[in-house]
Design a protein around this nucleic acid. Structure first.
Lengths: 358, 358
DNA sequence: CTGAAAGCGCTAACAC
DNA sequence: GTGTTAGCGCTTTCAG
């Protein structure tokens, strides 16, 4: 005996459960397999039947249970984007906006849902790892890793396919070959920036770095030092990639080395902070002090006064690339712990964009 | 015959699969049930056995498969935070930073992993809905909904517990009682702001609104109108809650009504844009034009020149409250479609904070 | 205290 | 084309 639509719906209401494949099958008077086929877009189902099933799905408001599905398919068309960063930096830095735009664009093209996870404190690691390892996602994109971050190892150990944004690990680059990452040519870009300053006849070239436990920050400093051997420590100030940090560092540099005539700043956001201080202290740019940034985040670099000469890296493109690498890695085969499917890392070029600040 | 550790690990390497409960059980020479008990922290397991199991877990690098678990428990200790917003707004507005801080804080306290999802285009809805309905999360927190947003209905229809940030639906407030939401007293706050302006003796009070298809924007405009009946249209400019939008709207207002002597701006971010234009046009604040904002985002409101008089809403607290409401709703019972477990909505008070701009 | 067995909702051979 | 069957990895009665 077939139950009528209203009877079924009534029953559901009472039980308070979401409809399952079986409910849909019963309602459309077919088997679960056939429903499954329709849901997954397999072609060989009679049109009339398919239609009946689609109706049933709509009427019941059926949504497939991904947990059950992924239990058998080992896929769930979602990838995690993990950012290890105090949130307040994330939400104020257009860098991430750009990066995420690229990632999102590519991921949805592959039919994957991006899910964003934050790690802010030490206690977050176990929870996030459980999520990552729990089979919610097919892979992970990871960012802003500090030298001592446990995440790369944890993720690799779980066998979860991952691509890193920026070379993980300490600046010196050991271990790097173990992971797949996408990074800009930070060192080369920094060299170009500093050489430009030198070619302008600047002699006392200072630098504001990012947090030196991050590879990108270290690499940019290395590039600076490649050109300027034996830089006195008072020309180097470490900051934190924030606007305020850049401002503070600039103030410090001005105190330590009042005679500086140029500064290479490791990010545009910090550079805009530095410009503010220079202005406050009555130094003209580029007259008294030439300034070069890093990133070429157009909304910042073009809006500063004067517009910023900076090292361009294609952030959005890097995001897209990361996503593509990950999708390549996940869609191929069941992953193997031995890393046989590891993809090569990519270092993307940078380019000096000359505006008015240097 | 028991396989040795290295044999097992070797096998895993070859098969390339993550270890399961069964693997752990075999290694610890107990049954799956017992392992499960230890994993879930049930007390009645002999200490020695528990210890052996924990060792096996560690050695194998076992992480429970959440998909399998949630299939039976109907829980997965994760909740979605869904933001319907062009990303570039999100990542530049400290409002979300604040909100998410509150949410995060409360959620992790309840042992739930927050996962962030963005909706930027129409095409994102089906994918996000599948994720939400797919059993990845126990509930959802939803934001920035436009009047015609299909999400509230979709989510409600899936029977997924949800709490909304800001009253969903059109400004007039129909349907509102169907959903659980947390909102500030936008209308009351706006009234207070405008009354303050009036009490200062201002006569031509303009307003810059948010997108009027959002309830919060509409409510603030309603509050403005409550005090200033029959405002001429040229004193009202609609913007989009961005800094640039606020600036543009201010310019427009100055063109339309050069004699204005005050402006109530529906967000601090927009207010800071408006202040920039006023300065550029040579109007003093509060001398020529008094300005009141909305939000009291301290980093903005205190940094403007002059510091901003504004309507304070406890954004972080609202985030916390939303999370708490959701957790209350999910942790109680298996949810029922008929809404028997719906929790009441909450409207939190606002308060005028007087600084220098009015 | 511990184990055996029955599914959770779905897909994937394999029959028909 | 469509149905049947056997699990995916886990929790959870229910025995012992």
């Amino acid at each position: 005996m077939n139950r009528t639509a209203s009877e079924i719906e009534l029953a559901e209401r009472l039980i308070g459960q979401r409809p399952t494949l079986e409910d849909v099958a019963r309602r459309a008077e077919v088997s679960k397999s056939t429903v499954s086929r329709v849901i997954n877009g397999e072609p060989r189902v009679r049109a009339a039947v398919a239609e009946r099933i689609r109706e049933a799905v709509a009427e019941l408001g059926y949504v497939p249970n991904q947990a059950a599905r992924s239990l058998v398919t080992r896929r769930n068309d979602a990838v995690a984007v993990v950012v290890t960063e105090p949130q307040n930096r994330l939400f104020v830095d257009p860098y991430f906006d750009c990066l995420l735009r690229g990632i999102r664009h590519e991921l949805v093209q592959h039919g994957a849902q991006p899910v964003l996870l934050f790690i802010e404190e030490q206690e977050d690691y176990p929870r996030v790892c459980n999520f990552l390892g729990g089979g919610h996602v097919d892979g992970a994109l990871l960012f802003s890793l500090r030298a001592d971050d446990p995440l790369p190892d944890l993720v690799e150990q779980m066998g979860l396919p991952a691509v890193f944004g920026g070379r993980p690990g300490p600046g010196s680059g050991q271990r790097s070959d173990v992971y797949t990452y996408v990074d800009a040519d930070n060192r080369g870009g920094a060299r170009e920036a500093v050489r430009h300053l030198v070619s302008l006849g600047r002699r006392r070239i200072a630098t504001i770095t990012g947090p030196l436990d991050q590879a990108s920050a270290m690499d940019r400093l290395d590039g600076y030092r490649d050109v300027l051997l034996d830089t006195p420590p008072r020309l180097v100030a470490e900051a934190d990639f924030t606007l305020q940090g850049g401002a503070d560092a600039m103030a410090l540099l001005l105190d330590q080395a009042p005679d500086l005539d140029a500064v290479f700043v490791a990010s545009d956001l910090m550079a805009s902070g530095a410009l503010r201080i220079l202005r406050e202290r009555g130094r003209t740019v580029p007259g008294d002090v030439a300034v070069v940034g890093f990133d070429d985040l157009t909304p910042i670099a073009e809006a500063t006064e004067p517009p910023l000469t900076t090292v361009r890296q294609d952030i959005e493109g890097m995001g897209r690339l990361m996503a593509r690498l990950l999708c390549d890695r996940t869609s191929h085969q069941p992953l193997r712990k031995d890393g046989a499917h590891r993809l090569p890392s990519v270092v993307t070029p940078t380019r000096l964009v000359i505006r008015d600040s240097a």
